[in-house]
Design a protein around this nucleic acid. Structure first.
Length: 308
DNA sequence: TTCCTGCAGC
DNA sequence: GCTGCAGGAA
């Protein structure tokens, strides 16, 4: 990029304000998962491994049961492999390979680390089943000694808010620049909460009082596409979907004027826009051909109703 | 040999 | 998301 070109993406000038806004938002209110109330690396590891494959509500019970049965790495290391795998199956936790890894990792901590967890991401990665992501999560949440977490939530937030391009290196760099030094515990919790609560696949900016609205590119432009959000359904699929909505809407309202119907069936309807009158007229014409809908011109307007 | 990337399978 | 393996690079 030359210096005459405008910077199309990057973090805001006032990164400090961006950081403070997010942390304040997180601390004011967030979901209370039990593993957010501990800094025991073993308990954190168990929660991370479980979370990789299961939705969080189910994880809560499993996590509590697991730690009740094997409260420490020493307990887990002494357990029979079959019992650990059996627990995994009984709690529908999916791939029981992970139970095996967890058991193995506990034995590693006991035999190779004398019963006390390593504290840096690099050392944590030595544990079986612990890759870059999990190592960083444990370092952050247990020891506040991690780097910026980069998962799909973080990517989505960075992509939307700051137009970071869909590239792993760029995401790493942006996430890292964003995180305040030495605050990985609260920061990684906060940015993942943002991606889960305010900036999910379907954004809830205002409802969740997103702290980044003032800086967010997507909030400004209305373009909330993201790398992990399924791109527009295929033309046929989406057309079928909208045909269904037209029918359902007309069943409810008897008859509707063209633009009113348009707004009822899609939020991005604008009469003159991409999916406007022209698009809707074509859709209605098809439905009329199929004998499902009647379209009438009435004193300058167009009205649609179900075919009687 | 060691390291890295890509890919399959869990 | 992680491991394990295959094939290519240093």
């Amino acid at each position: 990029m030359t210096d005459t070109e405008a910077m199309e993406w990057g973090l805001p000038e006032d990164v400090a304000a961006v950081r403070e806004a997010l942390i304040a938002w997180y601390e004011a209110d967030h979901r209370e998962f039990p593993w957010r109330r501990t800094d025991d690396p073993y308990e954190i590891l168990v929660s991370e491994v479980m979370s990789q494959q299961t939705q969080l509500e189910r994880v809560v019970t499993a996590w509590e049961d697991f730690l009740e049965r094997w409260p420490t790495t020493a307990d887990l290391a002494d357990a029979d492999r079959a019992d650990v795998v059996g627990f995994w199956t009984d709690h529908s936790l999916g791939y029981n390979n992970r139970a095996k890894y967890l058991h193995e990792a506990a034995q590693q901590v006991e035999t190779e680390y004398d019963g006390s967890f390593p504290e840096t991401p690099d050392e944590l990665q030595e544990l079986m089943g612990v890759g870059p992501y999990t190592a960083n999560a444990v370092a952050s949440f247990a020891f506040n000694a991690g780097d910026a977490v980069v998962d799909t939530n973080v990517k989505r937030v960075c992509y939307r808010a700051f137009d970071i391009p869909d590239d792993d290196g760029a995401f790493e760099e942006a996430a890292s620049d964003l995180m305040p030094d030495g605050r990985s515990r609260v920061w990684n919790n906060a940015i993942m909460e943002l991606g889960g609560i305010a900036c999910g696949q379907t954004p809830r900016c205002d409802e969740a009082r997103c702290p980044w609205r003032a800086w967010c590119s997507a909030y400004e432009t209305g373009d909330f596409t993201a790398p992990d959000v399924p791109t527009q359904p295929s033309f046929d699929g989406s057309r079928r979907q909208f045909r269904g909505r037209v029918i359902a809407t007309l069943r409810e309202y008897d008859e509707l004027e063209l633009d009113t119907l348009g707004h009822r069936i899609r939020v991005d309807y604008t009469p003159e826009g991409q999916h406007g009158r022209e698009w809707l007229t074509g859709l209605l014409a098809d439905l009329a051909d199929d004998g499902l809908v009647a379209v009438e011109e009435r004193d300058g307007g167009t009205v649609a109703r179900l075919q009687r």
